[in-house]
Design a protein around this nucleic acid. Sequence first.
DNA 1: CACGGGATCGTCT
DNA 2: GACGATCCCGTGT
Length: 205
Amino acid sequence: MRLDQSFYQRHDPLQISRELLGKTLVTQFDGIRTAGIIVETEAYRAPDDSACHAHLNRFTERTRTMFAAGGAAYIYLCYGIHHLFNIVTADEGMAHVVLVRAIEPTEGIETMLLRRNLPKLHPRVTAGPGAMSQALGMHKQFNGTSLLDPDGMIWLEDHHLTYPDSEIAISRRIGVENSGISKDWDWRFYVRNNPYVSARYYKWK
DNA sequence: CACGGGATCGTCT
DNA sequence: GACGATCCCGTGT
């Protein structure tokens, strides 16, 4: 079952980040379907979150997508190399997004290995937002596209997998240590002991 | 395995 | 002109 508008257009990106753990993220284009279970997310929320690109509701060509209605894909180029994938939530005009940082691969694994240029399944295939996006074929080209469109190339499915709170860990977000007052907010959610969580950051706890 | 530097380019100042 | 919501690889232990 595909996640619909009622899932995305809510006003609590922390709750949505938590609920996304266990959902299946799918891309399909050129006749190839790739998918995996979301195991790591981070919430970003304007206007108060200083780590958010749309802090203080800053509206630029890049952040335009963040203000779209919930259910859009916000994909931007990071470090000139990585196309990071975010899910836009809430109503139009509110910049609330969830960065998807890692999945556990389930479908199209051979394709993911080719895209990642790796010989066999290993956490490095999809652990971390840049690696995950490359494995799924995410591209800035898809920025602003809808996750609700039946003809779209990216969407989420509910396969009725839910993790109990005892299996969920919460921490500071990764890579935002220079982003001001909100750098220490615990807005990262991940599945404990899952090997596909961006492993080199376990030390962050 | 830990550490550190380089890659690479769109975005904003 | 500076700087990233990152990753890879080479080096040293």
